[in-house]
């Protein structure tokens, strides 16, 4: 038997029901399903732990403009009858400091591993706040998806649509987070303490704070913090911690790779199920197996989910 004939025979054995595979496509045997499940798990382990072992071949890189994030945010606010937020360079500087801190200390959270809270970045940038809030997003390929994701989460939506805020600052930072090239969006909201009307005592004003997610400052700014610094930096600046190129690169990302594998695997199984079912029906085979229509429908739903799945996380 030539190599080509052998390969053809093996392929038929895998796909078409016949005596050699007990009249059931070999790929649909329970053992094959287990092998393929293990293959997906092994792939996930590879892309999950590979970067931590020094394999920096995958990454999320996206071209996200802070100005666009602000525009989309204000668009949502105006739609809800709220005033548009004012872009504040000091707040953007605080956002940039927070994003850089996350990359430098390898964490993805509102509070850093050493206990530094978001409000510390407001203070160190020189933004004395009356109200403050923070939304985080990562691994989104475009700003629209990031803003829409925030809008789907009640706590983030409350921040985004709060009438307590007057200013907004955005930073988009790119760099290595836990071994994976990542794009993080830091969205800070605030209202300066100096804007508080003089007739309202500060202590009293603080009691009016409406909880916005988990991000309400616990303490009022001190007199020192009330000092306003000169705006620094340009909001259009994006810190390029790792010098990633700014083109969308989701195909090479862990999510893109997983999605491609899932689509290929789903299509292969669906095709084999259809071929197996049609051949068995035409030959009038009596088999004790699951319903082909049901399996194809189930895998079809999985494929539909794979197609609508989007990359990105919010916090």
């Amino acid at each position: 038997m030539s190599a080509a004939s052998y390969l053809l025979d093996r392929t038929i054995h895998l796909v078409v029901p016949r005596p050699s595979n007990n009249h059931r496509a070999r790929l649909l045997h329970s053992s094959s399903l287990v092998y393929f499940s293990l293959l997906v798990l092994a792939f996930q382990l590879f892309i999950g732990y590979g970067p931590r072992m020094g394999l920096r071949v995958l990454g999320y890189a996206a071209n996200i403009s802070p100005t666009e994030v602000i525009r989309l945010t204000n668009e949502k606010r105006v739609t809800q009858g709220l005033s548009a937020l004012r872009e504040d360079p000091v707040l953007s500087q605080a956002a940039l400091a927070k994003g850089t801190d996350m990359l430098n200390k390898d964490y993805w959270a509102h509070v850093s591993p050493d206990g530094t809270e978001p409000w510390a970045f407001f203070a160190s940038a020189g933004y004395a706040y009356r109200y403050a809030g923070e939304n985080l997003a990562r691994d989104f390929s475009n700003p629209t998806d990031a803003v829409e994701a925030w809008m789907t989460s009640p706590s983030h939506r409350d921040n985004l649509l709060s009438d307590k805020y007057a200013d907004i600052g955005i930073a988009v930072v790119e760099g290595d987070l836990n071994g994976v090239d990542t794009t993080i969006i830091v969205q800070l909201f605030g209202t300066r303490a100096v804007n508080v009307p003089a007739t309202i005592p500060v202590a009293e004003a603080s009691e009016e704070v409406v909880p916005t997610a988990e991000l309400i400052p616990e303490v009022l700014p001190t007199e020192e913090e009330l000092a306003v610094t000169q705006p620094v930096g340009n909001n259009e600046l994006i810190s390029g911690a790792s010098g990633l190129d700014s083109n969308s690169d989701l195909v090479g990302s862990p999510f893109g790779m997983t999605k491609t594998l899932a689509l290929v695997m789903g299509l292969v199984f669906m095709t084999v199920m259809v071929v197996d079912g049609v051949v068995a029906y035409r030959r009038g085979l009596k088999r004790f197996v699951g319903r082909t229509v049901a399996h194809v429908s189930f895998i079809g739903m999985v494929l539909a989910i794979v197609l609508i799945a989007k990359a990105g996380r919010i916090f």
Binding site: S37, F255, F298, R313
Partner: peptide, 24 residues
């Protein structure tokens, strides 16, 4: 055998979906 087949098809589907959720 039929029950096992449904279980293994479900596991394969679950693994694919979980891998997407984790990678997202």
């Amino acid at each position: 055998e039929v029950v096992l087949e449904y279980i293994f098809v479900s596991i394969l589907g679950l693994v694919i979906i979980f891998s997407l959720i984790l990678a997202a």
